[in-house]
């Protein structure tokens, strides 16, 4: 591949990686907020991490 092609490739790679990165960040931040709030509630209730995990894994 010549240098001009490499320049175009890196530009495309940079744009694609940025879009993917920020999309995942927004989605994870939005969906993970509820999990964090639940974790804080469990802590406030004085419950250990294992106990909370056991409860949340039960059907």
């Amino acid at each position: 591949m010549d240098v001009e092609t490499w320049k175009e490739v890196w530009k495309l790679v940079f744009i694609a990686s940025s879009i993917a990165f920020y999309t995942v960040v927004i989605a994870v931040a939005f969906k993970g907020f509820g999990d964090v709030a639940q974790m804080l509630r469990n802590m406030a209730a004085g419950r250990g991490a294992s106990e909370s995990a056991t409860d949340s894994n039960q059907p």
């Binding site: 993970g32 004085g46 250990g48 991490a49 294992s50 106990e51 909370s52 995990a53």
Partner: peptide, 20 residues
């Protein structure tokens, strides 16, 4: 307050959900 044993301390009681 959430630490009751070694699995709480090292792997958070193995309770992490996907997004966290």
């Amino acid at each position: 307050g959430a630490i009751k044993g070694i699995s709480d301390f090292l792997v958070a009681g193995r309770g992490l959900k996907t997004h966290m």
